[in-house]
C-alpha cells in the first residue's frame, strides 16, 4: 500500500530559485538561507528517497488568471512544464506527474466530500519548482539535477483571492489526502509538502513586515500532538505575518496528512530572502 512517510514545509520565494539558477547560492547574502537545506538534501538523497511528492502550493497569476479561481485543485497530468512567468521559464527539469495516484486521490477526496478541481494541463511556477530546487540535488553548489528524482502531484490552493480556505479546512484536507494515499494499492513511498510563507508582505506601505517570534511559534505548533494551528484565523496571519503570510495555511494540509502526532527531523529559519522570512521544517508521522 502507499504510505505517507514524511512531511516537508518550505518557503517558495522566487528569489531562491533565481539564486539557484544564477549560481549565487554561496554568496554572502544567500548562503545562510541555503545552509539550512543541506541536511534535507542529504536526507532526501540517502534516506528518504520518496517515490512521489504531493506538493501543496499556490499559483501566482501564472496558470490561473482571474477567469478561474479554484480553492483546491489537483494536478492529474503526466507532466507539468515550468512556466514562463514573464522572464522566461526556469532552467529546471520538467515535473513528472503520477496520474494514477493523482486521479485516485482526486476521486477519493470527492467521495470524502472535498469537491476538488481536476487539472489536466498546467504550467507550474516558482511556487512549485523552488521547493524542488531546495530539496533535491546533492552538490554543495545547489546545482539543479538533470531530472527530479521523484514524481510530483501538484495540489494548488487559492491563497490570493479572499477568502482562502480556513486553516481547519486545510488540515482536514490533509487528513483526507492521507486516507486517500493509504487506500492506493501500489507500494509507494509518498511525502507531502506544504509550501509558501513564512512572514512577508509584498504590497502597500506595510510591505517588508517580518515576525520572527510568530513564525517560530508556528513552527513549534507543527511538532508533536498539538492541533492548535487548526484554529488560527485568517486575520491573525494577516496582522502578525503580513498579507502574504496567509500562504502558511498550505502548511496545514501537510500537517493534517501526518496524523495525530509528528516528530521533528529538521528545522531552519532565516531572515531575509528578498522580502520574505525563509522557514523550513521536516517532520515524520509518529505511528
Amino acid at each position: 500500500m502507499a504510505r505517507i512517510t514524511a512531511g516537508v514545509a518550505t518557503s517558495h520565494i522566487p528569489a531562491l530559485g533565481v539564486a539557484v539558477d544564477l549560481g549565487k547560492t554561496a554568496e554572502a547574502y544567500w548562503a545562510p538561507a541555503f545552509a539550512g537545506y543541506e541536511w534535507t538534501r542529504a536526507w532526501q538523497a540517502a534516506e528518504a528517497k520518496p517515490d512521489v511528492v504531493i506538493l501543496v502550493f499556490n499559483d501566482h497569476a501564472t496558470a490561473f488568471d482571474m477567469k478561474l479561481i479554484p480553492t483546491f485543485a489537483i494536478g492529474c497530468a503526466e507532466r507539468f512544464v515550468p512556466a514562463d512567468e514573464g522572464w522566461g521559464p526556469r532552467p529546471v527539469p520538467v515535473v513528472e506527474g503520477h496520474p494514477d495516484l493523482a486521479w485516485h486521490i482526486a476521486q477519493s477526496l470527492i467521495l470524502d466530500e472535498f469537491d476538488m478541481t481536476i487539472i489536466n494541463d498546467m504550467d507550474v511556477d516558482h511556487g512549485l519548482t523552488v521547493p524542488l530546487s531546495m530539496n533535491f540535488g546533492t552538490d554543495a553548489a545547489f546545482t539543479t539535477p538533470a531530472a527530479w528524482p521523484c514524481k510530483v502531484i501538484p495540489l494548488a490552493v487559492n491563497v490570493v483571492t479572499f477568502p482562502p480556505p480556513t486553516g481547519n479546512r486545510c488540515w482536514a484536507l490533509g487528513e483526507a489526502v492521507a486516507r486517500a494515499v493509504a487506500s492506493f494499492p501500489e507500494d509507494l513511498n509518498v511525502q507531502i509538502w506544504g509550501t509558501g510563507g513564512m512572514s512577508h508582505q509584498l504590497q502597500g506601505p506595510r510591505a517588508g513586515l517580518i515576525n520572527r517570534d510568530w513564525d517560530n511559534g508556528f513552527l513549534d505548533g507543527l511538532i508533536g500532538d498539538s492541533d492548535r494551528l487548526r484554529h488560527v484565523p485568517h486575520i491573525e496571519y494577516l496582522r502578525e505575518t503580513g498579507s502574504e503570510g496567509i500562504e502558511m495555511v498550505m502548511w496545514l494540509v501537510m500537517r493534517g496528512a501526518l496524523g495525530r502526532e509528528t516528530r521533528l527531523l529538521h528545522r531552519h529559519y532565516h531572515v531575509p530572502a528578498s522580502n520574505t522570512a525563509v522557514g523550513h521544517i521536516v517532520l515524520e508521522p509518529v505511528a
Binding site: S199, Q201, R206, A207, G208, L209, I210, N211, R212, W214, R239, E240, T241, V271, P272, S274, N275, A277
Partner: peptide, 9 residues
C-alpha cells in the same frame, strides 16, 4: 530594513 530583520509588526 530587510537585512536588519524586516519591518516590525
Amino acid at each position: 530594513m530587510m537585512v536588519a530583520g524586516g519591518r516590525s509588526a
